[in-house]
Design a protein around this nucleic acid. Structure first.
Length: 291
DNA sequence: AGTCAAACCTGGGCGC
DNA sequence: TGCGCCCAGGTTTGAC
């Protein structure tokens, strides 16, 4: 489930690998996942890779951008010349393209920048088993008008300050976990980090947001920052099929506090971690630690 | 305005 | 070997 840390890890990988390259060709194998006119960006140079919540934006030098959402099973995978060391670090072996590869970008390095592997074609694959994700071509100036970006809430680790977070929490009656996952309120938090942040803060997922005391809001705010930062440092969580742009898994799943830990003992008190449904989603918590 | 559920998909895990 | 069922879940859409 790529959430903020996973998408940020993808972003960093793409930034280092594709900025400066031009889009030579695009092969669309599953048209429903590609919206817009591919011709508008063929020949354009990639100048920037941005992230907003769980959304990615690849900016081009001709006034257009690629907006991408990988949803649950989407992957952006780069195929390039790998050193032996890189191949050993690689944790998945997918022969690309495969039946889940729905869009293929052929990239090339501008001639004046050619150094090594100058004849090697570089491909960026959009691969998505469940086909929920999307790639769309849009004018850079219109990114903010797309439904997803237009309604996106505050960005943690950036514009989400304690004061703003406090205001959001105090004005909502919804269960705190659902509020954390509401992308129109706070951007980028999904099921993994909502569960773990609430455990770290010692707050029960079902608690009405506005029932949280000022001290609890503060503890939760820093718990959110803590889990997100730890996961970014770990390259994200590969509990499911997440891998970064180089096909490498993250390791944050080794640090999960309660997510998918039902039946196991709470690290803090030894009580059994429970699982319940909240808002239709699996919710993990320690009945003893989280009040 | 808000809350809620269904829809979109496929692989994996389970019971039988 | 296999069938049927449920689950995973982030938007997006439509209904109340």
């Amino acid at each position: 489930m790529p959430e903020l840390p996973e998408v940020e890890t993808i972003r960093i990988g793409l930034e280092t690998a594709i900025v400066g390259k031009t889009i030579e060709d695009i092969e669309i194998r599953l048209p429903k996942q590609f919206i817009g006119d591919p011709k508008a960006i063929i020949g354009a140079e990639i100048v920037n890779v941005r992230r907003y919540g769980k959304g990615l934006v690849i900016d081009l030098n001709n006034g257009y951008s690629l907006a991408i959402h990988v949803k649950m099973t989407g992957q952006l995978l780069l195929r390039q010349q790998l050193s032996t060391e890189d191949k050993e670090r690689r944790t998945i072996e997918i022969v690309l393209p495969d039946r889940y590869t729905h869009v293929i970008f052929k990239l090339k390095t501008k001639s004046e920048k050619l150094k090594i592997n100058e004849n090697e074609d570089v491909y960026l694959f959009f691969r998505d088993i469940r086909q929920f994700g999307w790639v769309r071509v849009v004018k850079t100036s219109k990114i903010g008008e797309l439904p997803f970006f237009r309604t996106l809430g505050l960005e943690p680790l950036k514009d989400l300050t304690l004061e703003k977070f406090s205001k959001v929490v105090k004005t909502s009656k919804t269960p705190i976990k659902l509020l954390l996952m509401d992308q129109t309120k706070i951007a980028g938090i999904g099921n993994i980090y909502a569960n773990d942040a609430l455990f770290e803060a010692g707050i029960h997922p079902k608690r009405s947001a506005q029932s949280l005391h000022t001290s609890e809001i503060k503890v939760l705010f820093y718990a959110i920052e803590s889990v997100l930062k730890k996961s970014i440092a770990a390259g994200g969580a590969s509990a499911n099929n997440y891998v970064n742009a180089f096909g490498e898994k993250g390791t944050y799943q080794e640090q999960f506090l309660v997510y998918k830990k039902d039946g196991q003992k709470c690290k803090r008190c030894g009580f059994e971690i429970k699982k319940m449904k909240l808002g239709g989603r699996g919710t993990f918590y320690c009945p003893d630690c989280q009040k």
